[in-house]
Design a protein around this nucleic acid. Structure first.
Lengths: 116, 116
DNA sequence: ATCCTCCTGCAACGTTTGGTTGCACATGAC
DNA sequence: GTCATGTGCAACCAAACGTTGCAGGAGGAT
């Protein structure tokens, strides 16, 4: 695992979950099962229109899916896609942890050498 | 763990690592040990000034630290802070995984009930 | 059917952020 | 000293997040 590890991260997916408002929305949808732009906005400090735009973003990357029910449009989380996103998060975190530990080992080795 | 789980995420730290260019910079700094705005920009598809701004952001949240060496300014990652960031990533990923598995269990339980 | 309500969708606007170019300043090499 | 290299600052552009305002569509009550 020498130099470039190619960081296999879907950038559109990452930027979708990068926004704190969208993370909050995903959280609400997970807890409540589903929701509309209106119901979500009532539980968050932003307007319905802002929520609607975010739902559009999440829908474009496949993290949520919409079903038209009469005059309202219910969204729910696409579980497979969210699982992929979660895996990416853990993956980047693990990569950094691995690099940090490698650095730590090298530093310790140098210290040992200098103590001779 | 019913409704609100407070999502204990440092928002400034998250938004700092949310940008793909900044993640790339952190990666380069980890691999090469340290770097300046100029050397980093040579390995990336953006200008030196853009890199300098990102280094400013990373420095403000404590992810990198600068040491003035002559006419150049070398940056290196703050390992403790990056470890905290990595932990946050894994934490959010794990939270989502837990919610998804909980939903999966509920769905299975409902299916069993309906099969009776 | 008509009126009223609720939810959605579109357009315009302001602010922040990532990126650029251009130029001025400081430091090291000659 | 001159010249080259690295940094820093300011102006500018484009995209994204958020707002307000208004038009339109679907249900329920009279």
């Amino acid at each position: 695992m020498n130099a470039a590890v190619a960081e296999q991260v879907d950038d559109s997916l990452w930027s979708a979950i990068g926004d704190p408002t969208r993370r909050r929305m995903l959280d609400l949808l997970l807890v409540e099962g589903d929701g509309t732009a209106t119901t979500l906005s009532q539980r968050m400090p932003v307007t319905r229109q802002a929520v609607a735009k975010h739902l559009g973003v999440l829908d474009r990357v496949g993290l949520v899916r919409a079903t038209s029910a009469g005059r309202e449009k219910r969204y729910r989380v696409d579980e497979a896609q969210l699982a992929r996103a979660a895996a990416q998060l853990s993956s980047v975190g693990s990569t950094w942890d691995a690099r940090l530990q490698r650095i730590k080992r090298i530093a310790e080795a140098i210290q040992r050498t200098q103590q001779d």
